[in-house]
């Protein structure tokens, strides 16, 4: 009988990804409702450090798949390895990160193993017979409870939905799972990774932090202040319709009714009044910070934290303090 929870941890350059450390908290939450033990499988190449880091943060057991085929993410190799880890652990629930890799892998494996799957989950409840996963839909404006029965179910978790798991002071057992990759297809080959500099090229769709600028910036050159804050926070740059229409910024950065809908962990609106046409594109954000000179600006009504003040004074100060 399937039992317990398996989490699929990713690494980057031999270290756990931040999303994998949040994943542990999701795994602990799932274990609390589904029972059994919490096993973590960690994948990559040269991941001894990542494995012991994982073992120190509250999981019951760690399974390591360390192989050159896992040095770079490919669907074929990762799905092949994770499938074997699932068969070995025989869990009730498998949880993946909400990274581009996790969101790529989970549906593939759910189809392979005929398991129900819920994406982008922000809370886990229910019990072993019926796991209840809460997830945002319709651009984050509303949420839905997904009930997962059956013997085996799968989830991906929303970025930032669970806190990073802390070290517990004890360490779980670490075992190696030998995977023979000779049977794994190799239909997609990686040619390289072009790294983006922090902030600069981060895509809006995947960004945890978005810093958006509006007409309050007065002229296009002042957008440098937005870029500097975004860089300091490792976030992406976005713009209101007013400044896109004025030709200051490209359309792909535009948030709102005629632009993109985003729901990052943190959305910082600078010099944006918060017209409804803008707000529909970002009100699903987990937390909203507004910086505006006008205390009556509607953006303050939906802000979790607002500063009424001159952005030309506040922004340089904020960037400086964040870098300190």
């Amino acid at each position: 009988m399937p039992n317990g929870v398996l989490i699929v941890a990713e690494t980057h350059d031999g270290a756990l990804r931040p999303a994998s450390i949040e994943l542990i908290s999701a795994g602990l939450a799932a274990k609390a409702v589904a029972g059994g033990s919490l096993t973590a499988v960690v994948l990559g190449e040269g991941i001894v450090t990542a494995a012991s880091d994982l073992a120190s943060r509250g999981v019951d057991a760690v399974t390591v798949v360390d192989h050159t085929r896992l040095a770079q993410f490919t669907t074929d190799a990762y799905a092949f390895a994770v499938e074997q880890a699932i068969r070995a652990a025989d869990p009730r629930l498998v949880i993946f990160t909400g990274t581009t890799a996790g969101r790529d892998l989970a549906p593939r494996l759910a189809a392979r193993l005929q398991a129900p799957l819920a994406a982008n989950v922000t809370a886990i409840g229910g019990d072993a017979s019926e796991i209840i996963a809460t997830r945002p839909v319709l651009g984050g404006r509303v949420q839905s409870d997904v009930r997962l029965g059956g013997d085996l179910a799968m989830l991906t978790i929303g970025p930032g939905a669970f806190p990073k798991a802390e070290a517990t002071g004890s360490s779980a057992s670490i075992e190696t799972l030998d995977v023979d990759f000779s049977g794994a297809p190799e239909r997609v080959r990686v040619t390289g990774v072009a790294t983006v500099d922090a902030g600069g090229g981060a895509s809006l769709a995947n960004a945890d932090v978005i810093v958006a600028g509006g007409r309050g910036l007065k002229e296009p050159d002042n957008f440098g202040l937005i870029e500097q804050l975004a860089a300091a926070m490792g976030g992406a740059v976005a713009a209101s319709r007013a400044v896109v229409d004025a030709g200051w910024r490209p359309h792909h950065e535009q948030i709102g009714q005629t632009g993109k809908t985003v729901a990052p962990k943190l959305y910082i609106a600078v010099g944006i009044s918060g017209a409804v046409q803008h707000n529909v594109g970002m009100q699903g954000s987990e937390r909203i910070v507004a910086i505006n000179r006008d205390p009556d600006a509607p953006i303050f009504k939906i802000a979790s934290f607002g500063i009424v003040g001159d952005l030309f004074d506040v922004l340089p100060e904020l960037t400086k303090q964040l870098k300190a």
Binding site: A115, P116, L117, A118, P136, V137, L138, R141, V142, Q143, S144, D145, V146, R147, L148, G149, G150, A153, I288, P295, F300, I302, A303, S304, F305, G306, I307, V308, G309
Partner: peptide, 21 residues
């Protein structure tokens, strides 16, 4: 039968934010 879901409902947002003025 293994998966079903509730009708979507609005999530509660922490209402009054902090305003520094």
């Amino acid at each position: 039968g293994a998966i079903s879901w509730s009708a979507p409902m609005a999530q509660s947002r922490p209402s009054a934010g902090i305003i520094v003025q």
